[in-house]
Each structure stands twice: as C-alpha cells, then as structure tokens.
Amino acid sequence: MTPSAPGPALRVDALSFRYPGAGFGVRVESLALAPGEQVLLTGGSGSGKSTILHLIAGLIEPDAGHIFVNSTEINRLRAGARDHFRGRHIGMIFQTFNLLQGFSAVENVLVALMFSDLPRAQHRPRALELLASLGVERANAPIDQLSVGQQQRVAVARAVACSPALVLADEPTASLDPQNAEEAMTVIQQSCRACNAALLCVSHDPSLVSRFERRMTMPQLATTSAAIGGVLSSTSGGGAA
C-alpha cells in the first residue's frame, strides 16, 4: 500500500525490534497512514502497542526495518537530529498526560514550542489561542490546579502545538472517566483534523472503536514475542474490530 502524493504521514516497512536481553519483541511488516488519517490500534496490555509507538517516535531504535515520518526515515537520523525531528513533526499524548509539574498550562505548551521552527514572538499567542480553542479556561493556572479533563486538553494542545504531521496517542483515555474520555477523544480527533495531522491511537478501550473508520488489532498489525519470524498479516481499511 503506497498512497499517492503527498507522501504518507507514516510508513513502516519490515520493522523488527527485540528488547535487549529479553525474549519480548515486535515485528511490523507494513503500516501506512495518509496525511490526516486516523487509525485506532487495539490490543491487550503487554501486547507491544506502546513499543510500536516508541519505535515510530524514535525513542527506541529498531533492529531492522524502516520508519518514514513525513517522508523522512526517522531511524536513519542521528540521535540529535532525530530529537529535533520529533519535536517538529511528531506530537505525543500519554495516558498520564506527562505535563510538567510547577509549570502553568500555557507554559507547558510553550515548552513544546521551544523546539519548533515558529518565531519566538508567536509562541505565546499561538499557545493561548490553542488552549482557548480547546476549552482550557485558566491558561496561567499551575497545571496541578486544573481538573483531569482540563489537564488532558493541555496535553493535547502541547501535542499539536507544532502542527505535527503525526500524533501518537498512547492510551489517552485510560485515566479518564467515560464522560471525560469521550470529550478528550473528541478534542484529540478534532485537533488532529484541524492541523491535518495523522493520528495513530493506541488503546484497549472498546468504546473508542466506533470513533475510528480505520482500526486494527495487534495480532493483525504485528507479531510479537515468540511469534516473531513467522509471516504476519497487516490489515488496513475498516472492519477489523
């Protein structure tokens, strides 16, 4: 599957990774996300979903294979260049938000913009505008004074602040109650659409399934553990519930 121009937001070919010294590993034969495309990857905990996100983000290096983000092969970049590239082109959202404690909402977004190409003078206006559009009312409040729902919105704002080509969401609703989860997912998907970022969302929350047109399960996407080495099937398009 080779989407026509513009190039895919994400393309993964023959990727394999094994944790050093451990038996656990993952292998992905093929995966591609078109610009703005939103994909849900489901699977039980420990199935290697997060590992795949970390590989795509360049936080860990694969043993073999290719990862292209926005047509740049991220695993061929040197460490420093890979960090820079991640800051500019990949946004990440976490289950525990991973917001910087002691920083205000707007400061959390400003930290992300530090590593962007955006001129400094535009950082604060951009951060405030983004927070307002996501419904964060107290942009200058310390992060720990915001509700959980508001915190996740700040985390989303931070992820899309640099207008990334790809947003990786790792169990974004797992810490939220159903109502907040619903709202957070809406915000994430809308934000990605607004900046035409592709979204790869990893979750074991079945209630999210209906929100994605394209979804896949871990066994469909990747072989893990002892299964590595066998032929793996990759599924795209709908209907993989």
Binding site: R86, G87, A112, F115
Partner: peptide, 14 residues
C-alpha cells in the same frame, strides 16, 4: 519524568 518529557518534545541529550 521531566527530562523524558523534554526529550519527547524535541530536546536533545545535549
């Protein structure tokens, strides 16, 4: 965790 977050956001080890 703060260091890890900064790295995710694009900070190099340097």
């Amino acid at each position: 965790r703060q260091i890890a977050v900064l790295r995710v956001l694009g900070a190099t080890r340097g």
